[in-house]
Amino acid sequence: MIRLVVPKRPFPRPTPETQAYWDACKEHKLTLQRCLNCEGQPAYFYPRPFCPTCLSRNIESFEASGKGTLHTYIIAHRGAPGFQDDVPYVIAVVELEEGPRMMSNIVDVEPTPENLPVDLPLEVTWEDLEREARDGTTEKIGLPLFRPARGGS
């Protein structure tokens, strides 16, 4: 298995509305939010303190299963700043089991179209990012990545 190591990732900077999502990521928990007002209580992403469908503030966060499928993607042959040594790498949209979609990288697989059929089952995996804060302490955050599902439920 090839492990895609991508250094120098831009460090996500939470806002008050997204702090809880990134705090959970530190614990390697992928969270979504759902509307308790809409029929079927649909999940949504990215984090907002209200339902993007009905605008109700009657929402809650919950831990997602971490399972999803490969909705669409590209294989980058030119790297972003800091990513130049990591090409080719996969920038994908993952459709989570709960419905919402998010961007991620697909890792632990050689990035070829043959290895990456659309709708391929995926599962979440984590990369820990660190950076030095202004006060000299080390800031940490977890970044959800995805890999081909290894089976089991």
């Binding site: 990732r9 831009p10 996500p12 961007m103």
Partner: peptide, 14 residues
């Protein structure tokens, strides 16, 4: 910036 840039996107081509 929070939900896409960390995945190695670089402007329009990616």
């Amino acid at each position: 910036a929070q939900f896409e840039d960390s995945y190695g996107t670089w402007g329009a081509p990616s």
